[in-house]
Design a protein around this nucleic acid. Sequence first.
RNA 1: GCGUAGGUGGUAGAGCGGUCAAUUACAACAGACUGUAAAUCUGUCGCCCAUCGGGCUACGCAGGUUCAAAUCCUGCCCUACGCA
Length: 413
Amino acid sequence: MSKPLKFKIEKKLNNSLGRAGVISTPHGDIETPAFVTVGTKGTVKALSPEQVKDLGAQVVLANTYHLYLQPHDYIIRDAGGIHKFMNWSGPTMTDSGGFQVFSLGAAYGKNISKVTSAESAPLLLPENSEDDVVKIATIDHDGVTFKSIIDGSLHYFTPERSIEIQHNIGADIIFAFDECTSPNEPLRYQQEALDRTHRWAKKSLEYHKNAKPIHLGTKFPSERQALFGIVQGGRFEELRKESATVLAGMDFDGYGIGGSFAKEDMGTAVKWVNEILPEEKPRHLLGIGEPEDLFMAVENGCDLFDCVAPTRIARNGQVYTRFGKENLLNNKFIEDYTQIDSECDCYTCKNYTRAYVAHLFRAKEMFAATLASIHNLYFIINLVKKMRESMLNDTFHEFKNSFLEGYRKNKDL
RNA sequence: GCGUAGGUGGUAGAGCGGUCAAUUACAACAGACUGUAAAUCUGUCGCCCAUCGGGCUACGCAGGUUCAAAUCCUGCCCUACGCA
């Protein structure tokens, strides 16, 4: 049986876990480390696939839960798979729905995200202690009941079902169904959730390995799609290490690192895990993507990252610059005829001023979202690309220090 | 000139004796956003101190009634529509 994915390490960082390499998928290569563009519903919001390609994106990540609800995975299957359906010929991935276990479960209706600051963490209360809150995802031993965000109907996801849907969608890299836990959960709950995630990982893998081709005469899913297992364990060292060890013992094509982190010690947590995971398989740090976090992740041995931040904050008016983030809706930009970042080569910066983009945002024109998304994605994708280049020519640390010094400038002012 | 309806905070527009510094929406100002419930959400939005809170000036202008007026009365000014 041929493997759906190859990973070649080209260069390793001295005295750390960082590495640069190439992942080969049936739809092309991904030079790593690489930022994965998020296209949850089979589109990168506000952008055409051509724009996504032109700004340098190598790979797009869609979502199982969302595409299952709408248009439904059979539509994508019958359309010839996600690549054809969305007109993206490069590599693709799908998340398993495991994140929605968190975002529609413990986090639903609350103001919590998967990354917390360490000092605020002790003030937070566990989410699962009281069930007086409305959730639209509830977990049991075998799976998760989701209430549709579209029409409120109920849908039950098991690991097998998630993988089956992902086979129908047909992305090059798919993920095991996991439970992304809230950062507020105590050790006992994290342990319980971790056991469940491991059990589900095994089921995801077994289903994947044994699945028949979705069309007669085509390849087996396990030959054309790579399956990544997902490490969990919250912020606890023993759990993170246990999870990495257990999953490393299963025959996944690569690994995702999921769940919750404290901003301040995310690097340590990632390191615990990557010291255990097999070196020769790619590692995807799920949902992480602020510039500081990306340096941390690359240095600690992650190859892939995805994050909604660049596109989401773009739609809300915020842009990355080499001096930190700026909100284009601030009145100081109304008459600012310079570009968003004077050293940026993206389409937006080459052709438009801050004043213009600010005007589009104020006028609520949709092109604002497009221009800001192009810039932000270019900025982040290019940043990771530069990290890769700096590793290849042994200047990673210099690059990191000079970038972060400038990037923190706005905060220090 | 006569008749009618009105004049409220940046705008539109509620309120029609005390619970009104005044509902709401928009605008404005700021903040948040990390495997997308998200072109979303939160906060501020008369002035002055202030942590709760307190003081001052305010609903066209000037008077008046009342313990109390954006709200009732009188006059004046202005606007819109109708008739000359």
